[in-house]
Amino acid sequence: MEAVEGEEGIYGYRKLTHYLRTEHKLVISPKKVYRLCDELNILLPKRNAPSPYPKRLAKQHVITGPNQLWQVELNMDR
């Protein structure tokens, strides 16, 4: 608990798992640490990462009903 309430920063469950494994020599999985942190209500809210691609919306079209405009997103990362 001293790792959670220390001044050096806020630990997530991954850093807390690493801390418990290295400093206290515990054999514990990240899933177990996550569940324990969830029970103790010490999990931080999840961050929403911004999309790397901007949304290209059809701004010049006036859409008044369904099936008037279809858009296809191409993923070129393959």
Score class of each variant (00 low, 15 high):
Lys59Pro: 05
His18Phe: 09
Gly9Ala: 00
Arg56Leu: 12
Glu73Arg: 13
Lys32Ala: 06
Leu40Pro: 05
Val72Cys: 11
Thr64Tyr: 08
Pro54Ala: 07
Ile63Pro: 07
Asn67Lys: 11
Gly6Asn: 14
Gln60Pro: 09
Ile10Arg: 06
Lys46Thr: 03
Arg35Leu: 03
Ala3Asn: 15
Arg56Tyr: 03
Gly12Met: 00
Val4Asn: 13
Arg21Ala: 08
Val27Ala: 07
Ile10Asn: 07
Pro45Met: 03
Thr17Glu: 03
Pro66Asp: 13
Tyr34Ser: 01
His18Thr: 13
Pro45Glu: 01
Lys15Val: 06
Tyr11Gln: 07
Leu20Lys: 10
Ala49Phe: 00
Pro54Cys: 01
Arg14Lys: 11
Glu23Trp: 10
Asn75Thr: 09
Lys55Tyr: 12
Leu16Val: 03
Gly65Asp: 14
Asn41His: 10
Gln71Met: 15
Pro52Glu: 02
Pro52Ala: 01
Leu57Trp: 09
Gln68Tyr: 04
Ile10Leu: 06
Leu26Pro: 01
Ala49Trp: 00
Lys55Asp: 08
Lys55Ala: 15
Lys46Ala: 04
Lys55Trp: 06
Ser51Cys: 02
Gly12Phe: 00
Lys55Val: 13
Glu23Asn: 14
Gly6Lys: 08
Ala49Asp: 00
Glu2Ser: 15
Glu23Cys: 12
Arg14Val: 05
Leu26Asp: 00
His61Leu: 14
Arg35Ser: 01
Glu39Ser: 05
Val72His: 10
Ser51Thr: 00
Arg78Gly: 15
Ser51Phe: 00
Asn48Asp: 04
Ser29Leu: 00
Asp38Leu: 08
Lys25Asn: 12
Asn41Val: 07
Ile10His: 01
Leu36Pro: 01
Asn75Leu: 12
Gly12Arg: 04
Gly65Leu: 07
Gln60Gly: 14
Leu26Ile: 06
Tyr53Gly: 01
Cys37Met: 14
Leu57Gln: 15
Pro52Ile: 01
Lys25Gly: 09
Pro50Met: 01
Thr17Lys: 05
Ile42Ser: 02
Thr64Cys: 13
Glu39Ile: 04
Tyr53Ala: 07
Lys46Asn: 03
Gly9Leu: 02
Asn41Trp: 07
Gly9Ile: 01
Glu23Ile: 11
Val62Gln: 14
Lys59His: 12
Ile63Trp: 06
Gly12Val: 01
Leu40Arg: 06
Thr22His: 08
Pro50Ala: 00
Met1Trp: 09
